[in-house]
């Protein structure tokens, strides 16, 4: 297969970037999108040009490192099927023009070409996305039975891979789907209850401080999420945040 690519090239964090045209020739239809870029890069290297920088690692859809916006859609046209690395060229038409850009958001500074810095998501986790627990002092794992539906819903939320596609897809660059998934995972479980209020207040405030926008219910995030995190967790977070804020004013936060 052959494709006409328009790829965002930008040298370093500062400076301006632009879309550059490349031809991808003789791409096997079984190749993944990233393998297509590998082939283009091999070609660039052989011509003495600098290859296109893009983030990737596990290439099996779980690490969350790959982060391409393809034809305007984070992780590509196959909405919700998976990450960029799980997109295969057979899903494209031969001869198609494909525009490749980074995940764009003010809170994700560009590093080079298609690679961005998503450290803001780590800092949101630092603000409360954990359960404080001392290694080696935990009670027996079965001492605390957890109803299966609760455990299953917590797992649905925990499946978030932290790729940031939700942010890139949102017209407001909001990180609410990411934050709500982590908050829901931990808040739903009995182990996470003691720190619930601190968690939601801390994480939401950090999200604001990082410059992510507000949620105004576009649901673009849910549509592109490779881990199928439902937007209903955002509603759960809004409720928990409101409750925690009220308790905070009366000094009764958990």
């Amino acid at each position: 297969m052959n494709f006409h690519l328009k790829v965002w090239r930008q040298n370093g964090t500062s400076g301006t970037g632009k879309l550059v045209d490349y031809e991808a020739r003789n791409i096997p239809s079984e190749a993944s999108f990233l393998e297509m870029l590998d082939i283009v890069n091999e070609d660039l290297v052989s011509k003495g040009e600098e290859p296109i920088a893009f983030d990737h690692d596990c290439r099996e859809g779980i690490c969350g490192m790959c982060s391409l916006t393809i034809n305007g859609v984070p992780h590509g046209k196959d909405r919700g099927v998976g990450t960029t690395c799980q997109l295969y060229m057979r899903k494209f038409k031969d001869g198609e023009t494909i525009t490749i850009e980074p995940f764009r958001a003010g809170a994700f500074p560009l590093q080079k070409d298609l690679a961005v810095n998503r450290g803001a998501l780590d800092r949101i986790i630092q603000a409360g996305g954990f359960i404080s627990e001392r290694s080696g002092s935990a009670p027996d794992a079965n001492a605390l039975p957890i109803p299966k539906p609760i455990a299953d819903t917590a797992m649905d939320a925990a499946a978030c891979i932290g790729c940031g596609a939700c942010v890139a897809a949102c017209p407001n660059s909001s990180a609410m789907l990411f934050v709500s998934a982590k908050a829901a995972h931990l808040n739903l479980l009995p182990q996470g209850k003691p720190e619930k209020d601190r968690r939601v207040l801390g994480m939401v405030r950090q999200m604001d401080a990082e410059g992510f926008g507000n949620c105004s219910n576009y649901y673009e995030c849910e549509a592109v999420c490779p881990a199928h995190i439902p937007a209903s967790f955002i509603a759960m977070l809004n409720r928990d945040y409101t409750a925690a804020s009220i308790r905070e004013t009366t000094s009764a936060t958990a």
């Binding site: 627990e133 290694s135 935990a138 794992a141 039975p145 299966k148 455990a151 479980l189």
Partner: peptide, 22 residues
């Protein structure tokens, strides 16, 4: 065995049975 205790305490959502046990 302590690893499982540790991970559950951290909130790792291991698969459970209907009785709530692992």
């Amino acid at each position: 065995a302590a690893i499982i205790d540790q991970c559950v305490a951290q909130g790792v959502p291991f698969a459970r049975e209907y009785g709530g046990l692992l």
